[in-house]
Simulated assay, not measured.
Amino acid sequence: MTAAMTATTTTAVPFAVPSFTGAAREAALRVLDSGWITTGAECGAFEAELAAYLGQPYVVAVASCTQAIELSLRALRPAPGAPVLTPSLTFCGAVAAIVHAGCRPVLVDVDEDTLVPSPATVAAAVRRAGKPAAMVVCPLGGYPADHAALADAAGLPVGRIVVDAAHGPGGAVGRADDPSRAPYATCLSFYATKNLPIGEGGAIATHDGDLAAWLRSARLHGMTRDAWRRYLPGGSWRYDVAELGFKANLTDLQAAIGRAQLAALPGWQRRRAELAARYDAALAPLVRLPRRDPGHAWHLYQVRVRERDAVIAGLSEVGIGTSVHFIPVHRLTGFAALFGPDERAALPVTDRVGAQLLSLPLYPDLTPDAVDVVTGRLAELLA
């Protein structure tokens, strides 16, 4: 038995461990003691601080990234059944959001090296399915996909692009753009395993003031005045609903945690990059790695392996957790009926890499020694 084997038999390496600062715990208690825990002043402060971090003029916090995508697409006012481009190699919720927005998802194959759609694969999807109404761009794992180049390939203005940045923030994804090349909306996730973990929650960053104003109403049933503003001293109980909205708001309890977590994010991102570099040094000779470009958010550390199930089992038996991101949506029973045989057959790279991708542990509290344990065991299995 090797040193790596000995280490892993006594020390488990979980796949994901969310980091929470002491300040986040204090912030949660502060809100609980304040008498106001739903959407209010903390939410507004979190939105402003996140906007400053991203360099974006507007951020609107919502209940999840999935709802952020749906709301952003609805705000574009697509015709019923309008085609919306999306990769199949993405989280199922991102494609469900397209359907719930009343649109028809059109699947795009991915590039072999980046694992995200390329201008060539986008153009191929447009030739197959016709001009889309919009596109959802997914920077898988935090890879900084060029949404403007993909928009050009789709024949769309960047104002018809929604970026599913659930695997950011932290890198280039979601950062300020030249307004002339900025996407309509960049959607973020604060799920427990994400780079900025709150537990649940999401947000939309945008340059579009009209979109931000619509979102603030739409996230709370379409009401013209939320409870916080109605109950402030001098506030009025009156409100209107000009357009039916949704229950998709973030609470002050979540926002206060998010504010404290945001202060720690730069340090966490440096740690993620350091750990990814350590993985790369050990694994580059052994497995095929996706391309590395500046601005990667390093939400996931993905490798490609053959006989994936056997590798997963070999890592699991010594306490190393793994995951798969993702099962292509056209392989999921509830989605398969949405796509015809020709569309499912038009995704050869997605099918190939989807059968090989494996996500290894990557989070700020992971130690270099734990990375060595993972790479040592993986080397044994691949040998």
Rank of each mutant, 00 (worst) to 15 (best):
P57H: 15
D111K: 01
D111E: 07
L85E: 01
A124C: 11
A45T: 14
T114S: 13
A23R: 15
T66L: 07
P105T: 11
V84A: 08
R128G: 08
D152Q: 12
Q67R: 15
L140D: 10
V126I: 13
S118V: 07
A45V: 13
A145Y: 04
T9K: 11
A48E: 14
A145S: 15
A101G: 12
A28M: 11
A51C: 02
A94F: 05
A101C: 11
L150I: 02
A149M: 12
F91M: 12
A82I: 00
V95C: 06
V62K: 00
Q67H: 15
A68I: 15
L89W: 07
T21P: 06
E26I: 01
F91V: 09
V108E: 12
D33I: 01
E47I: 01
A52H: 08
P132M: 03
C43R: 03
A41E: 14
Y143F: 15
D152H: 08
A123E: 09
P105M: 13
P18E: 09
A12G: 02
V17G: 03
L29N: 09
V106P: 00
S19W: 13
P139H: 03
A133C: 13
A94I: 07
A134W: 03
G35A: 05
T10Y: 11
S19Q: 11
R74Y: 03
V122Q: 10
G130M: 07
A41G: 10
C138A: 08
D152F: 04
A151M: 05
A75D: 13
P83N: 04
F91K: 07
L89Q: 05
A134S: 10
G55N: 05
G142H: 07
V95P: 00
V137Q: 09
V110I: 14
G93S: 12
P83Y: 08
P57R: 14
K131M: 12
A24S: 15
T39C: 06
T90M: 09
C43N: 04
R128V: 14
T66P: 03
A97G: 07
V110H: 06
T66M: 10
A97M: 03
L71C: 01
E42Q: 06
W36D: 13
A129H: 11
S72G: 06
F46D: 00
V122L: 10
A124T: 08
Y58M: 05
P119S: 02
